[in-house]
């Protein structure tokens, strides 16, 4: 009896401590934590109750060239085609479907959104992005967005209750995947994994006295690492993320539109050659087919943007100049007409 009393008293004390912690945290600290770790919550809160189109994207919806006359983002340009509609965006650099999923789940059910447009970035399906060092901070930013009690969320944040692998581990996982993922071509090729291909490309370049590779070969190597992969719909985590988003959209009654972003195929071809564009085309066709079969509207910008319209000529990004953004925005806007009949206004008219 004495021991039971002893234990009961301690359980009561612990309960009091935890309840008080919860009350104090929720009242005095939760909001500042949200502002510090998940500032996207402000954009989510500011979404009007009735939103016609919500554009969700990564840095392709942020970047512009310094000499662009029109520096509007893709989502703002889309809004230009639909002046009568309420259009908002949720944009976070380096994000992908896994992060978008958390943003979308954080949208309160009372907010009525008709259409959600998500960027579908081919590169985000590759090992270079999946195992990026930015993944841990991105995942951390989503912890406080979940619909659990504030103290539980803070507990998860404190005790790393999210995918928190360090950069070294991610880097090794990336290199390992580049090594073990067999690249299956229907014709004979010299290299069947990214590591061998990358090394052969690097060996063909010129190095300066400090061993630094010439910029053209370096960029070619980067293209190989960014695009030389084959999507397996059963195991690729991004496919799983998109599937969950599709389920969420069905549950919430959103029209889901995927904006397949344009890639610099001309550069991929000139730097690396047809073997790389073969893989890119194969992944493109697979994604298009996969999502179309699921009944999702996919806006195909894959070949829409040509080399001069990419801002970063020395890196692989989907950052477009004004012209590039206009092309993508126009294509998305025209596709959206099907869902928002009569609202489309061409600025040219």
């Amino acid at each position: 009896m004495k021991i039971l009393k002893h234990i009961a008293l301690r359980i009561v004390m612990l309960t009091i401590i935890l309840l008080s912690t919860s009350l104090i945290y929720t009242k005095y600290f939760y909001e500042s934590d949200l502002q510090e770790h998940s500032p996207i919550i402000n954009t989510i809160r500011e979404l009007p109750i009735e939103t016609d189109i919500l554009y969700v994207g990564e840095s392709s919806n942020l970047m512009y060239a310094e000499d662009d006359a029109d520096k509007r983002t893709i989502s703002k340009m889309i809004a230009g085609y639909y002046p009568s509609l309420t259009i908002r965006d949720l944009t976070k650099q380096a994000s992908h479907a896994g992060i978008f999923k958390s943003f979308l789940r954080a949208i309160p059910k009372e907010k009525n959104i008709k259409t959600v447009v998500l960027t579908l970035n081919l590169r985000s399906f590759g090992a270079g992005w999946i195992h990026s060092g930015l993944e841990t901070p991105l995942r951390k930013n989503t912890v406080l967005l979940s619909d659990q009690h504030p103290i539980i969320k803070r507990f998860l944040l404190s005790f790393k209750g999210y995918d928190n692998d360090d950069e070294q581990i991610r880097d090794h996982a990336m290199k390992r995947q580049w090594k073990v993922d067999f690249l299956d071509f229907p014709y004979p090729v010299k290299y069947t994994n990214v590591v061998d291909w990358d090394e052969a490309m690097a060996a063909s370049g010129k190095r300066d006295a400090e061993g630094k590779l010439d910029s053209i070969t370096d960029l070619a190597c980067h293209y190989i690492k960014a695009f030389a992969f084959q999507i397996d719909t059963l195991t690729n985590p991004r496919i799983q993320d998109f599937n969950e988003i599709i389920e969420l959209a069905e549950e919430r009654g959103w029209n889901l539109v995927l904006n397949l972003l344009g890639e610099d195929l001309e550069k991929a071809n000139s730097l690396v050659g047809k073997d790389l564009t073969f893989l890119m085309d194969q992944n493109y066709a697979l994604l298009l087919d996969y999502f179309k079969r699921k009944g999702i509207l996919v806006v195909d910008n894959y070949r829409a943007v040509s080399t001069p319209y990419f801002i970063d000529q020395d890196w692989t990004t989907e950052h477009y100049t004004e012209e590039g953004r206009k092309i993508v925005a126009r294509n998305v806007s025209e596709a959206l007409e099907e869902l928002h009949k009569g609202a489309f206004v061409s600025p040219d008219k």
Binding site: M13, I17, I24, Y25, L157, S158, K160, N164
Partner: peptide, 19 residues
């Protein structure tokens, strides 16, 4: 128990969240 309370509260609420 007051010390426990301070420690538990600090661990949950004030933990540095950088990796």
């Amino acid at each position: 128990w007051s010390i426990y309370a301070v420690l538990i509260f600090s661990i949950i609420v004030f933990t540095g969240v950088e990796e």
